[in-house]
């Protein structure tokens, strides 16, 4: 068996929801059935084989090729298996992901991993705004699993995040961890303004202080926090800077906030 591969014939002019092209939805379907799946391009419904060259037959291993920046919800809701994007991906990658892995060789659009509850998403490049964040109308963003970003993250990273982990090797934009409810976000690079805005609980781990801090974030001093050794050990071997952290280096400067909303969240600054 070879990977079920969807190669775009040409980049669609409008966004296309490809959420149904995931391992669970395609399991057991014949090639002709997969080719006949109707996808909405704007207000026009088109057959999948009109949009893609479809090759391969392994529905547990799905590959998207071509310029996929207009493809939305890649791997949405999948429970197991693997989805690979051989380039850039559009918004909502891995929306509501329950299990399995999604790998994007390039960058991903906004709201990557929103509503994700399990599994793992690897984005080699950058992610747009509100990665792991809640889409408008939702009370929670990411609720489990692991999002690894090799490049930079946009604004409002982890907005209303409920659980899970987001690790960003590059920089993060403004309002990182805004309205966060729980979970862990670590950023190896620099930060935009006002992280932890409206943050209720959860953990933000940085290598340096952001340029602008909210006045409602309070300094609690430098401490050795034992849970970090377990956290760092669990990241061992991951690609990027977090996979090589010394599990014994658990001393951080701890800030708590946002005191405007209860202040049980924490910003931990390493080094």
């Amino acid at each position: 068996m070879s990977a079920l591969t969807f190669t775009l014939r040409s980049a669609p002019a409008q966004r296309v929801d490809v959420g149904m092209l995931n391992p669970a939805a395609l399991a057991g379907q014949a090639a002709s059935d997969i080719a006949a799946i109707a996808l909405n391009v704007g207000k026009r419904a088109v057959r999948a084989d009109e949009l893609f060259d479809i090759t391969g037959d392994d529905t547990t291993d799905i590959v998207f090729r071509g310029d996929c920046r207009t493809l939305e919800r890649i791997g949405a809701g999948m429970k197991s298996g693997r989805v690979t994007v051989d380039g850039d991906a559009g918004p909502y990658v891995g929306q509501g992901l329950l299990g399995g892995t999604i790998t994007v060789a390039g960058s991903a659009g906004a709201f990557c991993a929103t509503g994700m509850k399990g599994g793992r998403i690897d984005i080699a490049g950058n992610v747009g705004e509100s990665a792991g964040g809640a889409i408008p109308g939702e009370m929670k963003g990411m609720a489990g699993g692991l999002l690894l970003v090799g490049g930079h993250a946009g604004d409002r990273l982890g907005d209303r995040m409920r659980r899970g982990q987001i690790l960003v090797a590059g920089n993060a934009g403004d309002y990182c961890g805004s309205r966060m409810i729980a979970g862990t976000i670590a950023v190896a690079g620099s930060l935009g303004a006002y992280p932890a805005y409206g943050m209720k609980r959860g953990t933000l781990i940085f290598n340096a202080l952001p340029a602008q801090m909210l006045p409602t974030i309070v300094d609690c001093g430098a401490h050795r926090l034992g849970f970090l050794s377990l956290l760092y050990a669990s990241w061992k071997g991951l690609p990027g800077p977090f996979g090589a952290l010394d599990a014994g280096a658990c001393t951080v400067r701890r800030y708590m906030g946002d005191m405007a909303v209860g202040g049980r969240g924490e910003l931990l600054v390493r080094g």
């Binding site: 659980r163 862990t184 609980r201 849970f227 377990l230 669990s234 049980r264």
Partner: peptide
């Protein structure tokens, strides 16, 4: 009320 929980590698811990 100052306690916090962390789920790490599928196990929950309290701080």
């Amino acid at each position: 009320g100052f306690q916090t929980s962390k789920q790490i590698a599928g196990k929950r811990y309290w701080r």
